[in-house]
């Protein structure tokens, strides 16, 4: 089953004031999909491919498996579009389906693959400082402050090799940090949308995002030194 009874977005609170608002489908992507606009669909799969692949690879072992999950997600979207009520944004709905697909595929994978090849760095450390304590003096002030990156040429920051470093750093994150970093910083969701998609608290979302970004920063600092 792709859809559990739990939807990946919150219900309207029962104390909601005033009449129930039925959100009109004003999202241009949604309008275009409903009118079966081929160019709009092509643009949509292009725009979300990177974030969807990154997210799927949080759950699945390789690119091929992640691509299969992305494909199944789009097929499911088409098949169930007429049931989409617009209670969340189209984008949240699509990524919610991807989460369901990827998680369910991982459950199947985990039955055939050796345990150690999955679940690497599963939980992740959510405590402790994100900066090496040896970089601060007894007074808590920097003793080894970070370099300014303002003298790193932009061409270097934006080159392919730096991009690969960043992708590798994201993939090394503990999975719970990785999924939050991908949804926030790669897919561009707001904090409360991420909390709803992953069913986690604001506090959890913030801790995981902070730790994830701090790890990527550290990798970059070593690389750009």
């Amino acid at each position: 089953m792709l859809f559990s009874s739990r939807t990946p977005w919150p219900e309207e609170p029962s104390t909601y004031p005033g009449p129930r608002v039925v959100r009109e489908p004003t999202d241009p992507d949604l309008e275009a999909l409903r009118s079966k606009d081929e160019a709009a669909f092509e643009a949509l799969i292009g725009r979300y491919h990177g974030p969807m692949m990154r997210l799927a690879m949080t759950y699945l072992r390789d690119r091929g498996a992640a691509e299969d999950a992305v494909q199944e997600t789009w097929l499911t979207c088409l098949k169930t579009l007429d049931r989409f009520e617009g209670r969340s944004s189209l984008k949240t709905w699509i990524f919610g389906i991807l989460l369901n697909v990827a998680r369910s595929r991982r459950r199947k994978e985990s039955r055939i693959l050796p345990f150690t090849s999955l679940f690497r760095r599963e939980g992740g450390d959510d405590r402790g400082p994100t900066v090496d304590p040896r970089r601060f003096g007894k007074d808590g002030m920097w003793s080894t402050p970070p370099d300014s990156w303002s003298n790193v040429p932009e061409t270097r920051l934006l080159d392919r090799e730096t991009g690969e470093k960043v992708k590798a750093a994201i993939e090394q994150l503990p999975s719970k940090q990785r999924e939050v970093v991908i949804l926030r910083d790669v897919a561009g969701f707001e904090a409360d949308e991420v909390c709803a998609l992953l069913s986690i608290s604001q506090a959890n979302q913030r801790v995981r995002l902070h730790r994830g970004r701090a790890s990527v920063r550290k990798t970059l600092e070593e690389y750009l030194r």
């Binding site: 692949m53 970070p146 561009g188």
Partner: peptide, 26 residues
Amino acid sequence: CDGCRAYLAQLRTARSLIGRAADEPV
């Protein structure tokens, strides 16, 4: 604090470089 300003700038840069991982052709 120069050190914390540099660190904040690095975090911002890291965030925007992470965002570039979105660029991937189908």
